[in-house]
Design a protein around this nucleic acid. Structure first.
Length: 576
DNA sequence: GCCGTTTTCGGCCCGACTGTTTTCAGTCG
């Protein structure tokens, strides 16, 4: 995929042009970068199929940028980009990553103080040089220094599964205020992105000052970045930024819509508002001519006025949802309450924390109708994987649990390792004695694309494999997804009726949203599993469901929304 | 640099907060 590299280059060009003080072009480059980054197809394929014309069809790509993409496809280089890189020093774009520093200030620092990177900036601050610059001052200098510290601390985004509990705790604290009316989480957290940059919370209240005072004095607030009557920003002791906005109850829906984003979704929606004689902002939808408020109390009425059905937050990424909403063609997304079971979990037999019985009882309490217990196999020694004999004995004990525990069906399965050559860790005569087989990659993540594709295709061609577990093997912030040919593997899954797992573990979320969308287009089916290693992990199911929703999945795409008596349609060996 | 039911030229999302300056530019989301 050239998309990622090209997008990064366009972003960097935008930064360079910004520092040079060039107007408007940076926005155009950034817009193009965002579009390319989010594109489903590879720009190189588009170019190979339709040439420059195909590139021009992409939103935000005109003649000049299309030619640049063409140049990059042919030569792997961009002359204009190289030129810019030569004229400005290398570290300069990292200066823009520091909070409080934008292109104008960076330009001043570079031109007047010859500052080219963070190190030189720190040195200049120590000598008090920065405060003396025009437009700067003592306070600005301090803020830049604090920004440098934060930048060093790591700008890594927080996992959805880490941020959501923190946000919910804040919400419950703020709910105690009698001045607070409605209160909602907004931003990427409401859209349930896999990682979150900061937490956005909206409150409607007629007494903003009181709300802000309470918020900024919460015990886990470490530093106040800004405090005003409508907006305050703080850093928590857990090093995450929280923005709180106080909204007039009359336009709470408009604010919620605006602050939920995404940016791309909102830009598109504003354009539609403009074309229809409206102006849309966080303060409501206004008639452009009369200036009169026409909608704002709820999100629903805003979308309705703009001729759209309501769009779920998880879909608001400008992936065609605004167009489909016009014809009321958006899918009815799967919900947490639709999920009736779980096909992937571990016990103390391998690397889990609870016994099979404890897991089954907890699963029943959680509301599941059925589960499969799927411990590791012998190749995964580090996870205390079971050999064939141990697994079959384990399976018998699991099946026997059904006599003891009523009100939940317990299947005996295994999470079988896919070996480097694509063979499975257990022979077929053992696999066929298990109710459910999850096949997963736990090694060889550095294989090249061809080898990995062959390996996965061979493994999934085994007629006893029911589920492809956490397919890409990625661990967010830690391990890249394994590089196999995704469309080819998805096609095989469809043909062989292998179910794709959407793994709910917050650091996996694998398949991820965009892969799920692609798999749906190809015609695949899924299961949403928790991969629980302890009874408490069932509560992570909501992250898997959120990811499925971001991938446009409906209940019909997800096999574990089906009742127990229909499961035999999706699993070959299941005896009910 | 992009784009067009206001436009092939002249716009480009828009409002809050901060700090420096003293009426506003820069930054952020």
């Amino acid at each position: 995929m050239l998309n990622y590299d090209l997008a990064q280059i366009f972003y960097e060009i935008a930064d360079f042009l910004d520092i040079e003080g060039v107007a408007w072009k940076p926005q155009a480059y950034r817009k193009a970068a965002r579009t390319i980054e989010n594109l489903q197809e590879d720009v190189e394929e588009i170019y190979n199929e339709k040439g420059i014309k195909g590139l021009l069809e992409i939103e935000g790509i005109g003649q000049a940028l299309a030619e640049k993409i063409e140049e990059y496809i042919h030569t792997g280089e961009l002359k204009d980009y190289s030129k810019l890189k030569k004229s400005l020093p290398k570290g300069i774009s990292e200066l823009l990553e520091i909070g409080g520093l934008g292109p104008k200030k960076v330009a001043v620092l570079y031109q007047k103080l010859k500052i080219k990177n963070i190190k030189e900036l720190e040195f200049a601050i120590k000598k008090n040089k920065v405060a003396e610059m025009p437009g700067f001052g003592q306070k600005t200098q301090e803020n830049i220094l604090a920004g440098i510290q934060l930048h060093k601390h790591g700008t890594e985004r927080m996992l959805l599964g880490e941020a959501l509990p923190i946000a919910r705790q804040l919400v419950s604290e703020l709910k105690k205020l009698k001045e607070a009316q409605q209160i909602e989480i907004a931003g990427s957290l409401r859209r349930k992105k896999e990682t979150i940059g900061d937490i956005d919370i909206l409150i409607s209240s007629k007494n903003p000052v009181k709300v802000m005072d309470k918020f900024t004095s919460l015990s886990y607030v470490k530093r106040i970045l800004a405090k005003g009557p409508t907006k305050s920003s703080v850093y928590l002791s857990s090093d995450i930024q929280v923005d709180l906005r106080v909204i007039d109850p009359k336009v709470f829906g408009a604010a919620l819509q605006y602050f939920t984003g995404s940016k791309e979704h909102n830009i598109k929606l504003r354009g539609i508002a403009q074309n229809n004689g409206y102006k849309l902002s966080e303060y409501g939808l206004f008639n452009k001519k009369t200036g009169k408020l026409v909608a704002g109390k709820t999100e629903e009425e805003i979308y309705k006025k703009l001729g759209r059905q309501y769009i779920e937050p998880e879909l608001r990424e400008n992936y065609n949802e605004i167009e489909l909403a016009k014809d009321k063609k958006l899918p009815k997304l799967v919900e947490l309450k639709d999920i009736k079971g779980d096909f992937h979990m571990h016990t103390i037999a391998s690397d889990g924390a609870n016994t099979a019985e404890e897991m089954a009882l907890a699963a029943k309490k959680f509301g599941y109708e059925y589960i499969a217990i799927t411990d590791h196999t012998k190749y995964d020694r580090i996870a205390n994987g079971l050999n064939e004999k141990e697994m079959l004995e384990h399976a018998k004990r699991i099946r026997d649990l059904n006599k003891k525990i009523k009100g939940i069906k317990i299947f005996a399965g295994a999470e079988v390792a896919i070996l480097a050559d694509g063979s499975l860790d257990f022979p077929e005569d053992v696999l066929k004695k298990l109710d459910i087989v999850v096949a997963s990659l736990h090694s060889g993540f550095k294989q090249d694309k061809d080898a990995a594709t062959k390996r996965v295709l061979k493994a999934l061609d085994n007629k006893y494999v029911d589920i492809f577990g956490h397919p890409t093997g990625r661990i967010i912030h830690q391990r890249e997804p394994i590089k196999f040919n995704m469309p080819e593997v998805l096609k095989l899954c469809k043909e062989r009726k292998v179910l794709l797992e959407i793994n709910s573990s917050p650091s996996r979320l694998d398949l991820k949203d965009t892969d799920i969308k692609q798999a749906i287009d190809i015609g695949c089916k899924f299961v949403i599993d928790t991969d629980s290693h302890a009874a408490s992990h069932f509560y992570g199911l909501e992250y898997g469901v959120a990811t499925a929703r971001r991938g446009w999945a409906t209940p019909d795409h997800i096999v574990n929304t089906k009742p127990l008596n229909q499961l035999h349609r999706y699993f070959r060996k299941l005896k009910l």
